[in-house]
């Protein structure tokens, strides 16, 4: 019953986010601040993780090719498919649920605990629009870092495969160009945009409606990470079936 009530509250929150917009002059600076914090602030960690995951995918694939009948370009092909279809859009979103999600929940939750949200509401400001809308808009640029993640992931695979002696550069490059289906990138971007909305709104929901003190802010951040990850995984299954199934 609590879950049903929470889903209802979440839907009401989303409706409120788009009501009574804040002045554009103020909203513009809030959006730029959130782009800096949520997008550029996440670029470093995602580049770092993507590079090494790409490398590990390439090494694991190469080590598991035992038959001579399997072409050597499979290492590049498998790395590309893994990175574009799943690692960049989905795995990165789970990482973002931890990094960006916990930041959003704790910052909004702290504002709730310290009555800053009450202060906004008393002034007549639509606190949900003021706090959540800029995050949604900023995270619509999330596909930008996913493109970077895709590129760096495949680059990591190439570095690991060629310098680790698992494949030649020519085989790897042939593999990453083999049977390339552009719709797979579209599929990844569609997923990314949906996950971006989830990344902005579920952590905001947990922060905005939290009750209690400083300890509860920490608990809300953990709960938010768990639920954001669960929703991302479920939506990943649904979207994959709808778009590729």
């Amino acid at each position: 019953m609590n879950y049903v009530a929470s889903i209802g509250s979440y839907a009401i929150m989303i409706k409120e986010v788009f009501k009574k917009p804040t002045k554009w002059r103020i909203m513009k600076s809030l959006i730029l601040k959130e782009i800096d914090e949520l997008i550029f602030g996440s670029l470093g960690i995602l580049v770092f993780i993507s590079f090494f995951i790409g490398g590990v995918v390439a090494i694991q694939t190469a080590l598991n090719i035992t038959s001579e009948l399997i072409p050597k370009n499979l290492v590049g092909f498998a790395t590309r498919q893994s990175i574009i279809l799943e690692f960049a859009p989905t795995f990165c979103s789970i990482i973002m649920a931890g990094k960006v999600g916990s930041y959003i929940t704790s910052s909004i939750g702290t504002m709730r605990v310290t009555e800053q949200i009450d202060a906004l509401e008393v002034m007549g400001v639509n606190a949900l629009n003021y706090l959540v809308f800029p995050k949604i808009v900023a995270l619509m640029l999330y596909p930008f870092i996913i493109v970077v993640s895709m590129f760096v992931g495949i680059l990591g695979g190439w570095v690991a495969a060629t310098f680790g002696g698992h494949s030649t550069s020519a085989d790897f490059i042939q593999g990453i160009t083999l049977d390339f289906i552009p719709f797979h990138v579209t599929y990844a971007f569609v997923k990314t945009l949906v996950f971006a909305f989830i990344l902005a709104t579920i952590p905001s929901f947990h922060g905005f409606y939290m009750k209690g003190g400083a300890l509860d802010v920490g608990k809300a951040s953990t709960t938010s990470f768990v639920w954001t990850s669960i929703v991302i995984v479920i939506l990943n299954g649904i979207l994959t079936q709808l778009l590729l199934g």
Binding site: T114, E115, Q116, A119, V122, M123, G124
Partner: peptide, 19 residues
């Protein structure tokens, strides 16, 4: 109601200043 709220000022217990 929104206009009325703009005629209200509030000093919170913990000040509630924006960090």
């Amino acid at each position: 109601k929104r206009n009325l709220r703009q005629e209200m000022g509030m000093v919170f217990q913990g000040s509630a200043l924006f960090d």
